[in-house]
């Protein structure tokens, strides 16, 4: 197998959305996958935040890679990620206060999402700014896709709603377990198994 990374936009998109998806192939960003996926709205906003932070962090790391001393590059990458997360947090607090209130501490925890640092270190550090931005955005979209699938199941079965709108009949008894983190473990396990089985390449 060749170690050369295909940096064509289509190949990056396919890689990050499917064949090297950060959640079910790289098993990154799992903490937030367990924490925020009990409501679709929160999941959508949170993953949008992660997508933007990943894209702009990768862009910035790529632009500054010649300036950043190699020995302290991870400190600088963390600083860059924190910088964008603080901006997302402030903008949400100011202009989308209800969403910010609902997400609570999870916005700040974007900093700890391994996907962002992973893409900065594995891709942006050795590629150009535009392609790094695209890699960051598509990695975020791959993360977003999996989390939205989990959120659909959890909100539908846990609350009987989707995006807050009642879907299940009045007689439906919500499954409390689905709004609690353990259900996300089961769902994530199923998604990893399904994804890897469909690809057929690796043992699930």
């Amino acid at each position: 197998m060749s170690d050369v990374v295909d940096i064509r936009p289509g190949a990056i998109l396919k890689n990050n959305l499917w064949s090297n998806n950060p959640i079910f192939m790289q098993i990154l960003g799992i903490c937030s996958a367990l924490a925020v996926t009990n409501l679709l709205t929160n999941t959508a906003i949170m993953t949008l935040g992660v997508t933007l932070v990943t894209g702009f962090s990768s862009l910035t790391v790529s632009l500054l890679k010649k300036l950043i001393p190699r020995k302290v590059r991870m400190i600088v990458q963390t600083l860059i990620i924190a910088f964008y997360v603080i901006i997302v947090d402030l903008v949400l607090k100011a202009f989308l206060p209800e969403i910010s209130k609902n997400l609570g501490p999870y916005v700040g925890l974007i900093i700890t999402n391994c996907i962002i640092m992973g893409r900065a270190e594995a891709f942006a550090q050795s590629n150009g700014p535009i392609v790094s931005f695209w890699d960051g955005i598509t990695s975020g979209l791959g993360y977003m896709g999996v989390l939205l699938v989990m959120a659909v199941f959890r909100e539908l079965l846990g609350f009987g709603t989707l995006f807050g709108y009642q879907i299940m009949p009045a007689a439906f008894v919500p499954w409390t377990i689905m709004v609690m983190p353990p259900s996300a473990f089961f769902l994530l396990g199923l998604i990893i198994w399904a994804g890897k089985t469909m690809m057929g390449g690796e043992k699930a």
Binding site: V72, F83, I86, K93, F95
Partner: peptide
């Protein structure tokens, strides 16, 4: 020096963002 420069730029930009968002918050 490079670290200080990067931190300074980040702090200045965050200060500007804060100046815009703080009154709204």
């Amino acid at each position: 020096g490079k670290l200080a420069l990067i931190c300074t730029v980040a702090a200045v930009v965050l200060g500007l963002v804060n100046a815009v968002t703080a009154p709204v918050i």
